[in-house]
Design a protein around this nucleic acid. Structure first.
Lengths: 120, 120
DNA sequence: ACGCTATTTCTAGAATATTCGAAATAACAG
DNA sequence: CTGTTATTTCGAATATTCTAGAAATAGCGT
């Protein structure tokens, strides 16, 4: 991950409709969502959303696959992870104690220790 | 951290000069850097950088403090951590296995010196 | 006070982003 | 082939961002 790629991804996420679109797609993993369904959920015209999805796609944050008449969009969590690591890598240069709180926050956020999630 | 605040921070970081400015300030923690020194390092006119620093400051990503004639800028790693957690929080909804690779990447990246850095 | 240095604010033009109506493209059914 | 649905591309208006010259502000030394 280089600066140029990071800027592309950060710019893609730094617009309200796109950030919500990405978050919605994340919530719908791994099934994905059709472009039209996403437009309806976000209450945005289809062609406007299409432009936003194109930007997210160029930033590799989402991928798309045609499914008969619909085009299914999915969040690309791998790229998302790379960006997170890129951002945090910068904060680790020589001072691991800076990242420790981040790692701890994520551990408590990501580690459901007891109960399995109801959503199936 | 709400969407609006996240968009502000992501937008602040999604411009090459500002991303490099922020990374440079991170590397100079905890001493900070004078605005002029940073402008010289980045080879950007002082007033242009001043506008960028103002945007980073409004997004709470940097803080400033006057030191006689100079104004010392410092990266605000707390806000930075909040953004990282906000972004990753979205990816954790129901699927902790998504975040696991991120946490692992950060752990190896931020690993304290107690253990040798395994380059596996 | 004056000059010198460091930084910001003012200003405006150029570049880029956002939005959406309308037209185009793609897939399927009859 | 024609019609319907799903989505994208085109085009153009509007809004925002970026950049930097010039002027203004703040602090320090004399």
């Amino acid at each position: 991950m280089e600066t140029e790629e990071a800027v592309l991804a950060l710019a893609a996420l730094s617009q309200p409709t796109r950030l919500e679109a990405f978050r919605t797609l994340v919530r719908h993993e791994p099934d994905g969502l059709a472009a039209g369904d996403l437009a309806r959920l976000l209450e945005v015209p289809q062609n406007t959303l299409s432009a936003h999805l194109s930007i997210l796609s160029r930033a590799r944050l989402v991928s798309s696959e045609r499914h008969s008449r619909s085009i299914i969009y999915r969040a690309n969590l791998g790229e998302f992870r790379d960006i997170a690591v890129f951002l945090l890598r910068d904060c680790c240069g020589g001072r691991p104690e800076v990242c420790q709180p981040v790692v701890e926050s994520l551990q408590s956020c990501c580690a459901p220790k007891r109960k399995e999630k109801a959503r199936a």
